[in-house]
């Protein structure tokens, strides 16, 4: 019996092991492939470095900017704007989302304005915000908050409205207070959808900060891109863009981790 059991298990563990290796190496392999394709593209196209730099040139520029501290300094500046803007935007959107989800009349009054505000491109509003609030960090934080606001708000409303009425009635029948309903029913039920909005918001916040820095700034990755473009240092533009991508990915996967931690009860079984 034991022998049979072992023989049956062997192929399954081999498949699992292969799948694990596959997962571990998939990302590095795709990255290396992308770099090779990029290099080949530059070589075949015979692009000058100020039009399309090769990966090696971008790498060299990365090392220089890390060495002189300019990349870290500007990255930290943008990161602070993004995080503060994200927190501010999420806080306001969640609070307002709760009100809208609870009150149809408030939703009817505010919805047209909220939707209309989304029709205005942030690029058009950014110069006005900088004019009104100055060229410091605050205007960039505000732009981040505005861009984060809508997806988080919508997902908060949808999440709270997705709570089944039967469960709400059940809680009420158990004499649960409003606070208990909120903590033990509404938050857990709305969290998956809310975190979906947060994923989008986290990546959008990076765009918001860059839009603000493009319009007027003397620090940050947006400024670095603007200045490098003015100096025809295209390799540095690539370095700054890739740092932005890394920042957006880090924020996105931080939310994914948060999801895993807070929604462990709701995770699909891994086959």
């Amino acid at each position: 019996m034991n022998e049979n059991h072992t023989v049956k298990d062997q192929p399954i563990s081999r498949v699992q092991s292969r799948s694990r290796w596959y997962r571990i190496f998939l990302v590095p392999i795709s990255l290396v492939t992308a770099l090779v394709l990029w290099d080949v593209f530059v070589k075949i196209g015979d692009f000058p470095p100020y039009i399309f730099p090769s990966p090696a040139r971008v790498w060299d520029r990365l090392l220089v900017s890390v060495g002189d501290g300019s990349l870290l300094r500007n990255t930290l500046y943008t990161l602070v704007e993004v995080l503060v803007g994200l927190i501010l935007g999420v806080t306001v959107a969640t609070a307002l989302g709760y009100l809208l989800a609870k009150s149809l009349s408030i939703e009817r009054i505010l919805s047209p304005y909220i939707i209309a505000s989304q029709a205005v491109p942030i690029v058009a509003v950014a110069p006005l915000l900088i004019r009104w609030f100055g060229s410091g960090s605050f205007s960039k934080i505000l732009i981040c908050s505005l861009i984060v606001f809508f997806p988080v708000l919508v997902n908060t409303v949808v999440g709270l409205r997705s709570v089944p009425n039967e469960l709400r009635d059940l809680m009420k029948s158990l004499r649960a207070t409003r606070s208990q309903i909120f903590r033990y029913l509404e938050i857990p039920a709305a969290l998956p959808i809310f975190l979906g909005g947060l994923r989008i918001g986290a990546t959008l916040a990076v765009i918001g900060a860059i839009v603000g820095e493009f319009v007027g700034a003397d620090r940050g990755l947006g400024f670095l891109i603007n200045q490098s473009r003015g100096l025809y240092d295209t390799a540095m533009v690539f370095v700054a863009i890739m740092t932005l991508v890394a920042m957006a990915l880090s924020l996105y996967f931080s939310v994914v981790l948060l999801e895993k931690y807070t929604l462990s009860w709701n995770q699909p079984q891994d086959q």
Partner: peptide, 17 residues
């Protein structure tokens, strides 16, 4: 004190920024 304000110099001057 350099103030990077984008192309809004006229408004910034009028507003006293």
């Amino acid at each position: 004190q350099l103030d990077s304000i984008g192309f809004t110099q006229v408004d910034a001057l009028i507003a006293g920024l």
